[in-house]
């Protein structure tokens, strides 16, 4: 179980958090203008990387804030944690 450094509360147990899938998938501003394929791309297509992955997490049993996290899925090392709306760190 990892320790997650919530950007609002500090380091907490993983059991306080909920994973929310891949990060930086922006909901289209004008969904009605999109073709079925384009909408499906937003709706269904998610990466499942072995390695460094950008993810959404929610401190559901804490401050209930959503934030982003960079995690290496091969060894569970957390590389960075940053607030929603902030730019992802470049490596």
């Amino acid at each position: 179980m990892f320790l997650i450094n919530c950007p609002f509360c500090g380091e907490r147990e993983q059991s306080e958090f909920k994973a929310g899938g891949e990060a930086h998938i922006v909901r289209p501003k004008q969904p009605t203008e999109l073709s079925d394929d384009e909408w499906a791309e937003y709706l269904f297509m998610r990466k499942n990387i072995k390695g460094v992955q950008f993810e959404r997490w929610n401190h559901v049993h804490g401050c209930r804030k959503w934030f982003n996290m960079v995690r290496d899925t091969s060894n569970d090392q957390i590389k960075a944690v940053y607030k929603m709306g902030e730019k992802p760190p470049v490596e």
């Binding site: 909901r27 929610n58 559901v60 209930r64 959503w66 929603m84 709306g85």
Partner: peptide, 13 residues
């Protein structure tokens, strides 16, 4: 509640 918070915080801040 979780879903509403998610949209408020991430899509429509």
């Amino acid at each position: 509640l979780g879903k509403l918070e998610d949209y408020l915080q991430t899509e429509w801040p």
